[in-house]
Amino acid sequence: MAQLAQLITPVDTVVSRMRALDATLPERDGVAVFNRVYLAVTEEVDRRLDAGEFPDAEAAITLDVRFAERYLTVAEQGCAPACWRPLLQFRRHPGVRPLQFALAGINAHIGHDLALAVVDTCRTLGCEPADLEDEFERVGDLLVSMEERIREDLMPGPDLLQIADPLTHLLGSWSLERARDATWSAARALWALRGLPDLAEEFGTRLDAAVGFAGRMLLTPLPD
């Protein structure tokens, strides 16, 4: 058993926790929709780690795990910062589409949690954000490709994709690439403010609230 335990990486543990959530949440639940998306992303990161595609595996694993732990705390314990509250509030609303749930979760996790995870990782490894930029970009590129697949899988049929359709209009206002760029800037700002805890806390609170506002807009209930 000891030898087997040594083969289980922290990413494997994260994957196991997400699979456990998937088995217990109702399929249509908004958190369940996001969890399935995030599980697929994390499994792909784990596969690429095993394939040696991350030059600095320790940094990639630490960032991935610190990042995931922030979501898992919300999903498992219900203790949610402002960015996650819209998804928890609307998770069973019949007027919210699965694609909205998925993107609202991505918005909360990328827009807020990832910036804090970069800072957590820098503290853990004793490095600077610049030292994590390659890993950040690799994970970000994977998320962008996954977002494209999510939109294809969860978007309603072609008859609903007219430019005036409310869902098309709503989701066209949010971009993962823009969110990722803003997150990197936020992470660098938080790191620069680490010696000024009051300002860092204020910045983090405002970031949390702004991301939560965007999430609430993404979850606007739509007519059938």
Rank of each mutant, 00 (worst) to 15 (best):
R66I: 02
G195W: 01
D141N: 15
L114R: 12
A60G: 08
P94M: 12
L171C: 07
A2L: 14
E53V: 08
T220G: 03
W174R: 08
V118W: 00
M146H: 14
S173T: 14
G215P: 02
S16E: 14
L143W: 06
D22Y: 00
L63R: 01
R188V: 09
G212Q: 00
E177K: 14
G157H: 09
T124L: 08
D159N: 05
E128P: 01
G212C: 05
F203G: 03
M217T: 05
A189T: 15
R85L: 08
L4K: 13
E58A: 14
A2H: 13
T168Q: 14
A2K: 13
L63E: 03
Q77I: 00
G212L: 00
V11Y: 06
P158Y: 10
E148N: 10
R47T: 14
Y71C: 04
S173D: 10
C127L: 11
A104H: 01
L7G: 15
R188N: 12
D141T: 10
Q77N: 08
P166Q: 12
A200F: 01
D181E: 15
F101Y: 15
P156Q: 11
A117W: 04
E177C: 06
S185Y: 06
E135V: 13
S185F: 09
G204E: 12
L103H: 05
P94W: 11
P94Q: 11
G105V: 03
V118E: 02
A210Y: 00
C127N: 01
E148V: 10
V11W: 03
D12G: 09
L103Y: 03
L207C: 04
G111N: 07
A192Y: 04
R85N: 00
Y71W: 15
L25K: 01
V31N: 02
D159Q: 14
F203C: 02
R188W: 04
E53R: 14
E53D: 15
S175V: 05
T168A: 13
L114I: 00
P94Y: 12
M155C: 12
D131S: 13
A82G: 02
M217Q: 09
A51C: 02
L190A: 13
S16V: 02
A187V: 08
S16G: 15
G140M: 08
G30N: 04
L161A: 13
R180P: 00
A102W: 04
F54K: 11
